[in-house]
Simulated scan of single mutants.
Amino acid sequence: MELKPGESATIKRVYNNNVLLAGLPDGSEMVLVGKGIGFNHRQGETVDVEAADQRFVPDGSFAASHGAGVLGDAPLEQIEVAREIMAMVQAELRLEPRLSLLVPILDHMGFAVQRAREGIKVDFPLRWEVAQLYPAEGNLGRRVVALIKEQLGVQLQDEEWVAFALHFVNQQWSTSDFSKTVSMTETIAKVFTLLSVRWQSNIDENAHSAARFVTHLRFLFARSAKATTSAVLGVDVFESVRQAYPEAAEAALEVAELIGEALNRHLGADEVSYLALHTSRLYVEMLKTENSP
Rank of each mutant, 00 (worst) to 15 (best):
N202W: 06
Q243F: 00
L194Q: 12
F219L: 11
E118Q: 15
F238G: 02
S176F: 03
R13Q: 14
P97T: 07
A64R: 03
Q90C: 02
A22C: 06
I188T: 10
N202Y: 10
P75M: 03
A64P: 08
A64E: 01
A136V: 11
G60A: 14
F164P: 03
A211F: 00
A116D: 10
Q172S: 14
A22P: 04
I203L: 15
L263V: 04
E84L: 08
P135R: 07
P25C: 06
Q171H: 11
V19G: 01
R127G: 05
G27F: 07
A262Y: 06
L156V: 04
E137R: 14
L194D: 08
A262N: 10
V31N: 07
P97C: 10
E118T: 12
G110W: 03
R55K: 14
P58R: 10
K190T: 08
A74E: 08
V103F: 04
V169C: 13
V162S: 00
E205I: 09
A68T: 04
T46W: 05
E261H: 13
T185Y: 11
L287N: 13
S179N: 14
R265W: 05
I11P: 05
L258W: 02
V154C: 06
E250M: 10
R212L: 15
S196C: 10
R13I: 02
E159L: 07
R212P: 01
F39S: 11
V113S: 03
G72K: 10
A249V: 06
E77A: 14
E50T: 15
I11A: 01
S61N: 14
L152E: 08
L282D: 06
R115E: 06
Y274G: 02
K226W: 11
F213K: 04
G60D: 09
F219H: 12
L258Y: 02
S174G: 14
P104E: 04
E205C: 02
A91N: 13
S230T: 14
V162H: 01
H167N: 13
I11Q: 06
